[in-house]
């Protein structure tokens, strides 16, 4: 028996919009810790990890650990039928091959049930250890989205370099080249407008902009994004979900042969 009641149902809608273009099918795992997902894109160079902690739900009942395979496009279709202010409850029965999404309007005058078929998905679960990163950049998520969009009109890849001068996003294409440098800026009115650069050592890595642009679909989830860079590891682009958890995207860098 599974029953997860999320008062701020719009969060789940936003999560699906953030990941459905990157991943087609995925297993959602439900445990005492929370509702989580780990899945790779079809080419296995990017990975998304989602966690919605159990404490973030108004009601959280998960009698045993369960993994439920879902087609994210179908799930998104169903969640789009929920209003932005609706309370969403996810319900499942042991051994059932379906899951039910219940949408309640804030005034309780409209209640809808959407039943979705589950699917068997054979997926590998990777252990992602805590790591020391060469540099961690925390910046407004809308700014990061803007930079990725702007650069993708010039080139296909972005070089992200962190030095003591700041963080530089560079691209090059047939029509020319572009460089955008952000300096640390903590003297802003609101904390969500700050750019904070922690650098242990300089780092410069190249990534496909197509993936970066896909990650920025998570922008509505958080005003800030954290980009963790290390020359030995995939980049981590993290959007925190207020009081609930996170969506983290991992992307393998492009390496010069």
């Amino acid at each position: 028996m599974l029953e997860l009641r999320l008062v701020q149902g719009s969060l789940l809608k936003k999560v699906l919009e953030a990941i459905k273009d990157l991943v087609t099918d995925a297993n959602f795992d439900c445990s005492a810790t929370g509702f989580s997902l780990q899945a790779m894109d079809s080419s296995h160079v990017a990975l998304v990890a989602l966690l919605l902690r159990s404490e973030g739900f108004e009601h959280y009942r998960c009698d045993r650990n369960i993994s439920m395979g879902m087609n994210l496009n179908n799930m998104s279709k169903m969640l789009k039928c929920a209003g932005n202010d609706d309370i969403i409850t996810i319900k499942g029965d042991d051994g059932s091959d379906t899951i039910t999404f219940m949408f309640e309007s804030p005034t309780q005058d409209k209640i809808a049930d959407f039943e979705m078929k589950l699917m068997d998905i054979d997926s590998e679960h990777l252990g992602i250890p805590e790591a020391e990163y060469h540099a961690i950049v925390r910046m407004p998520s809308a700014e990061f989205s803007r930079i990725c969009k702007d650069l993708s009109s010039i080139g296909d890849t972005v070089v992200i370099s962190v030095t003591k001068e700041g963080v530089k996003f560079s691209t090059r294409g047939d029509i020319g080249a572009a460089n955008i440098v952000l300096r640390q800026n903590t003297t802003v009115d609101k904390p969500e407008e700050a750019t904070i650069i922690e650098m242990n050592e300089p780092v410069s890595l190249t990534f496909a902009l197509r993936y970066m642009n896909s990650f920025t679909k998570a922008t509505p989830l958080s005003s800030m994004v954290t980009i963790s860079l290390s020359s030995e590891l995939p980049v981590v682009v993290e959007y925190k979900i207020a009081e609930m958890g996170y969506v983290r995207f991992y992307l393998a860098p492009k390496i010069e042969e």
Binding site: S43, V45, E124, H125, G127, P234, I255, E257
Partner: peptide
């Protein structure tokens, strides 16, 4: 020419 490794080259299966 750029090489792009897979995520599973960096992280091990549970």
């Amino acid at each position: 020419p750029c090489l792009q490794r897979k995520i599973s080259d960096y992280f091990e299966g549970d």
